[in-house]
């Protein structure tokens, strides 16, 4: 398949259209939804760029934390982690757990809502 323009380029083109052309001509609810739509495209662009590295880092930490099968996929690893927390095999005091979840959630927030105040709090708290 062709990749010119790439998915990221296509999304960026739509985002620019919303920000520079559509939104200035809208008001009220429609303007609000246009801003939401633009933010959504921002998230989509960051997700495209960051997901491979984020997923691979998350998976690496989970394999180490759960001393699990290196070939397990991310969803199964997270399901195992959830079970271990439910069974009280792991808690917020277990070495490495909070740090892993914090790394994962910070990476997720940098994609989802990079300006969220809680992300700054987490960054300032150190690890």
């Amino acid at each position: 398949m062709h990749n010119q323009p790439s998915v990221a380029e296509l999304l960026q083109a739509v985002k620019s259209f919303i920000d520079e052309t559509a939104t200035p001509n809208l008001s009220g609810h429609a303007a609000f939804h246009a801003r939401v739509a633009s933010n959504v495209l921002g998230t989509a662009l960051r997700d495209l760029a960051d997901r491979p590295a984020n997923d691979s880092a998350e998976r690496g930490r989970l394999v180490a934390l759960l001393t699990s099968l290196p070939e397990a996929d991310l969803d199964s690893l997270n399901e195992i982690l959830c079970q271990k927390i439910r069974n009280r095999e792991l808690s917020s005091e277990s070495p490495g757990l909070l740090n892993h979840l914090k790394q994962t959630t910070m990476a997720q927030l940098r994609v989802d809502q990079p300006h969220y105040s809680g992300l700054r709090t987490a960054e300032n708290a150190g690890d």
């Binding site: 909070l98 979840l101 959630t105 910070m106 997720q108 989802d112 969220y116 809680g118 992300l119 708290a125």
Partner: peptide, 16 residues
Amino acid sequence: RRVSETEMDLLNLLEA
């Protein structure tokens, strides 16, 4: 995509 905001807050509270 705002669920992660509350996950961050929960972790900050647990860490504190």
